[in-house]
Structures are given as C-alpha cells and as structure tokens.
C-alpha cells in the first residue's frame, strides 16, 4: 500500500474521529486557540489601527513597529514565552497575540488610510463629529481593505497555531508533530492535510463573508480590478 492509500485509510478509520485525541477534538482545540488569539490581538490592534488611521498620529511609528514585529520568528517567540512563562495555554497564546498584531494593525490602518480624504472632508463639512466620521464614513468605506487584513491575520493565526503543538499543546498540529516524533509518515501527512484543508476552508468562508459584508454601494462601484484585489486574500504567507 503506498503512502497516499495509507493516509486515506487513516482518514477512514473511525478510531481517529473519536475521543480527546480524535480529529474533531483537535479541530476544536485549534479553533479555540485561534479565536482566543484573534480576540486578544484584535482588542489591541483594531482600536490602535483606527486611531492611527483616523488621526494620522503615530503613523510612522505604527508602520515601523508592525514591520519589525513581522520579522520575528514564530518558533523563536513561542519557545521564548514557554521558557519565560512556563508550560500551559497562555504563554504560547501571548506569543501568538504578538505575532498577530502586525497584520491586524496594518490592515486596519491601511483600510482607514485608503478612504478618500475628500470624503472625510465632506463629512466634516456636513457637521459630523469625529466619532461619527469614523463610524459612519471611514469604517464602512474601509471595509474592503479592513476585511482583507482580518482575513490575512486569521490565516496566519491558523497556520501558527499548528506550530504550538511543538510546545506540548493540542490542535491539529498534534498529528503532525506526533507523527514526526514516532516516525509515522501516515499520521504526519494526515496532519499536514488537515491543517491545509482547515486553512483553505476558513479562507473560503472569509471570502464569502467579505463579499456579502460589503456595503451595497461599494459592491456595485468596484471595478473588476479592485474586486480582484479584494478577493485576492492574504498579503503574506501564513506562518
């Protein structure tokens, strides 16, 4: 039996779909870590991105910080936090949060900054408060770019969560890392396929959300080229 057939057989085996080490449980863990990371990162990055985008203050600093954070090695940060804070759920999650802030911040900021300044001037001229300008004008118009940034960040989180199995946490990366440890190529490849499929599925789902969440005016006025750009997805490879 060749490797692919063995992998297919692995997937067909009901034993791999039950219990705390089965696929559904690992998938649940994977999604839980991802959601936790995203929630914490968004709580920091989105308000900051909105503030920088709206006021233009700290723009240079924000871009430089986001760029520097991007260069941080995923594995290095994960191991660092484990060494510093010990084993458990939160140390790797903190590391993931730090890695997730740059794409979220950049996406939020870029979205707001891409809104036509004339539009903002016009809104100010109409007598809107700054808060109204942000929520009623900038945010809806920033949505296409903003959602693109969020999509990139989500994919990065899903990819990085696969690595946390290396530091003794669950998630789909478990299959891969265990397969590697016990030299079981079938489990290794099955794990890789699960991670890839999850990423592609989430990406497809977010693409749909992106399409339907757009305000109708933006949907119709987009030219083909813009649409291509919006649907293109993430701007950097997932971790």
């Amino acid at each position: 039996m060749n490797l692919l057939e063995q992998v297919a057989a692995w997937f067909a085996d009901p034993a791999h779909w039950a219990g705390p080490e089965g696929v559904p449980a690992r998938l649940g863990e994977h999604l839980y870590y991802s959601a936790l990371t995203l929630g914490l990162a968004a709580a920091v990055a989105v308000p900051l991105g909105l503030y920088v985008g709206h006021t233009g203050r700290g723009r240079v600093a924000a871009i430089a910080a986001a760029g520097a954070l991007r260069a941080l090695p995923t594995l290095g940060l994960l191991t660092l936090f484990v060494i510093l804070l010990g084993i458990g759920l939160m140390p790797p999650v903190y590391a993931l949060v730090i890695l997730t802030i740059p794409p979220l911040l950049a996406g939020t900021y870029a979205g707001i900054a891409a809104v036509d300044r004339q539009l903002v001037d016009a809104a100010r001229g109409l007598g809107m408060t700054e808060w109204q300008i942000l929520t009623k004008v900038e945010l809806p118009n920033a949505l296409p770019v903003l959602l693109g940034g969020i999509r990139a960040a989500v994919l990065q989180v899903i990819a990085t969560v696969a690595v946390v199995a290396y530091i003794n946490l669950g998630g789909l990366g478990r299959f891969l890392i265990d397969g590697l440890a016990v030299r079981d190529p079938v489990r290794l490849v099955a794990g890789a396929i699960l991670i890839a499929v999850l990423a592609l599925a989430v990406d497809g789902l977010l693409a749909l959300v992106q399409r339907f969440a757009l305000p109708p005016g933006l949907k119709t006025s987009r030219s083909g080229r813009d649409r291509e750009a919006i649907e293109a997805g993430p701007l950097a490879p997932a971790g």
């Binding site: 490797l3 692919l4 994919l155 899903i158 990819a159 990085t160 696969a162 690595v163 990366g173 891969l176 590697l180 190529p185 290794l188 490849v189 794990g191 890789a192 396929i193 991670i195 890839a196 990423a199 592609l200 990406d203 291509e228 293109a232 997805g233 993430p234 950097a236 490879p237 997932a238 971790g239």
Partner: peptide, 28 residues
C-alpha cells in the same frame, strides 16, 4: 495564476514542508 497563488499562500508552511516530500519524492 492569481487564484493558484492565493491558494498556495493559504497553505500553512508547516503543512507545506510535510506535504512537499510526498509530492516531490524527497526525504522529509
């Protein structure tokens, strides 16, 4: 080209490192 590249992007690196040997026939 743009569709294929956006799918490629979406595949996490750890998964790609492991799937490639299967596709290329290289050692892990």
């Amino acid at each position: 080209v743009l569709s294929v590249s956006s799918v490629l992007y979406t595949i996490p690196s750890l998964a790609l490192f492991v799937i490639l040997p299967v596709v290329l026939g290289t050692q892990i």
